[in-house]
Structures are given as structure tokens and as C-alpha cells.
Design a protein around this nucleic acid. Structure first.
Lengths: 186, 186
DNA sequence: GTCTATAAGAAGATAGAC
DNA sequence: GTCTATCTTCTTATAGAC
């Protein structure tokens, strides 16, 4: 990776972390500067505005998500295994999901309130997971409509659990509720 | 109501609306000034800081929630009717819940990330509903443990549906998923 | 209680040297 | 590509008149 490219990546990684841990509006440009350890001018060279950084953060999350889902597709031939893998991955992330909520869900909640553009960015990210889940249920023999329904339920319940677990800062609650989701895969 | 008391209430109402529609950090003091239609100095007379207003907003939401739950308790002798009333109230709020998400859930997501104080404020608010739901399931004959479990599931699924419906700005999705919650009450 | 005016700092964005 | 320095606007908080 070229130097400029590496710097760009470092900025996006730092911003991604801060947007997750603090939220978008609470994160100042100067916070990103501090986190990434470069000058403000340098960051401005790579991204002309905070909104530009946000766009790049979304793009990064989309790419990362696509890679994870593709890896699962490759690793597990069986749709049931894939869905269980999805659920297990939530359990593995319990610490951060309980501390900060879901990275995508909390960002969507904050930004989607009155901004059509950022809402669409969130939709793109959510669609990746939503339609991947749907596809797995189709593979399990469900109709398109049923699969859509199941995917929505699994997805939304995961989101709700993250909200509750974050409010109560309670990993036990998180695990208990996530375990219930396995029944949807049976 | 005395004049000062009325002004205080108006400020809290305006802030409550803005925190819901825009989020806390995106809402500036000047936004509240504009919304309430009074001078900045007047608002500062009643609340010395934005955090003070936030505290009052939480207090208002707690009081309002307690009043609603108490009214349902009085209106419906049967626990099943109360729970269905809870679910119906979500459906009636579909427009705002889809546009802006759950008022309490989105505020908790935004503020609970790294602030123990505001997390506790959210917990107090969530506890009201959580324990009210729990009590209804106890009234239906469930054990304390089962009732807690059912209440958590109903509550968290409601939260998750709000997140998804907001992201997709989709009232149909919202209603479809909320209707599923009725099965938990049967 | 309500107002105007202003201070002090932080925010995001820009200019130009190296 | 990276830096320092600056600018403008916004944000919060305060002071003091009425």
C-alpha cells in the first residue's frame, strides 16, 4: 500500500472507531486528529470535510461486511451453519455490543433522524445483512416471503437486544436473549 | 400554573421534541431558543446548562411514562388487555417511531455510549416499562423468572423493530413486525 | 422573569510553507 | 503528503439592563 493510501486508511479506521465509541456528532474533527496522530492539515488533504470521512467510514463498513459474509459463504456449505455462525459472531462481540451498542444500528439511529442521505447509506449497509440472512432462509427451503419475514425478525431482534444490553450494560442479558435467536434457525 | 413554571415546562417540552427529532448532540442551545420562542437569557435563567435541560427532559419522560402506565392499570383490569394496549400504542405511534425511532431507545443509544450518568437515566426510564411488562406477565400466571424473560423479549423486540423501521423508513415493515408481538401475549 | 449584549472557547474549513 | 497558522462560524456560558 502506498503511503498516502495508508494514511487515508488510518484516518478512516480512527474515525470509524470514534463514531462507534462516541457517536458521530459528539466526535469532533480534532478527536480524529488526536486519534490518528497526524496533523489536521494532513487529514484535510485526504478528506475535505467530516461528512466525507463519514462516507468513507460507511464504505469501509460495507466492504468489511461483504468480506465477512463472503467468507462465511465459502466456509460453510450449509445455510443452517451460516446462520448459526452469524449468531455466534454476535456472542463473540458481546463486550463491545454491550458497551457501545451495534455499530451500524447506533449510527443509523443517530444519523437517520432527519437526513435522507445518511439514511440511505445505512440502508445499503443493512441490506447486505438483511438479504444475506434472507438468502440463507431461502436455502433452507422457505418461500421468498417467509425468508424475508424470518430475516427481518432475526435482524430486528438482534438490534433490539443490542439496545437493551447497552442500556443495562449487561452481557448476561445479551447472551440470554441472543441464545433465543437460535430457535429461529431450527 | 405560575408563569415561571409554565416557561420552564415549555422549555422542557421544546427540548424533548428536539432531542427526539434531531438527537441530543445535534441539538444546539440556540435550537432550543428558537423552538421555544424565548430569549437565550431567559432559558439560562431556568436551566444553567444543556445538561440540566437533559435531566429535566428525562424527568418529564419518566413522569409521562408513569402516568400512561398507571392509566392503563386503571382502565384495564385484565393483564392481557394491558399488554395488548401497550402493543396497540406502538402501532398508533408508527409515524413518529418510523421517522425518528423510539424516543427513549435512540436517546439511550446516543448517550449511553460512554457516559455512566446518562446511561443510568435511561435505565430508570427503561425500568419503568420493563417492570410494568414483567408485572403483567406475572399477573397472567408466569413465574417471576418467566415474566422477566417475556418482558425482556417483548421490550427488546419493540426496540429492534423501531431501529429497522427507522432505517428503512417503512411503516408497513413496522406494523408487520409489531403484529408478531401479539403472539407473546397469548 | 425576561431581555440584550458579549465573552470565551470549540467547531469545521482554508491558506500557504516545506 | 505533511505540516503550522489562521479564519469564520457556531456553541455554550455569563453579565447586566429593564
Amino acid at each position: 500500500m502506498k503511503q498516502g493510501e495508508q494514511t487515508r486508511t488510518n484516518i478512516v479506521k480512527a474515525a470509524n472507531k470514534l463514531f462507534y465509541h462516541q457517536g458521530f456528532h459528539k466526535t469532533a474533527f480534532s478527536d480524529i486528529v488526536k486519534e490518528v496522530g497526524l496533523s489536521k492539515g494532513n487529514i484535510t488533504y485526504h478528506f475535505k470535510s467530516k461528512d466525507d470521512i463519514l462516507q468513507a467510514v460507511f464504505q469501509r463498513r460495507i466492504t468489511k461486511t461483504m468480506n465477512i459474509l463472503a467468507a462465511w459463504d465459502e466456509q460453510y456449505p450449509d445455510a443452517k451453519d451460516r446462520l448459526n455462525c452469524f449468531i455466534e459472531s454476535l456472542k463473540e462481540g458481546k463486550s463491545d455490543l454491550t458497551k457501545y451498542g451495534c455499530p451500524n444500528g447506533t449510527l443509523a439511529s443517530e444519523l437517520g433522524k432527519n437526513n435522507a442521505l445518511t439514511r440511505e447509506l445505512s440502508q445499503g449497509l443493512f441490506d447486505l445483512i438483511r438479504h444475506w440472512l434472507e438468502q440463507q432462509f431461502i436455502n433452507l427451503g422457505f418461500s421468498s416471503e417467509q425468508a424475508n419475514d424470518k430475516a427481518l425478525e432475526l435482524f430486528s431482534r438482534g438490534q433490539g437486544i443490542c439496545v437493551l444490553a447497552q442500556v443495562y450494560n449487561d452481557e448476561t442479558l445479551f447472551i440470554t436473549e441472543i441464545n433465543k435467536l437460535k430457535q429461529l434457525v431450527k
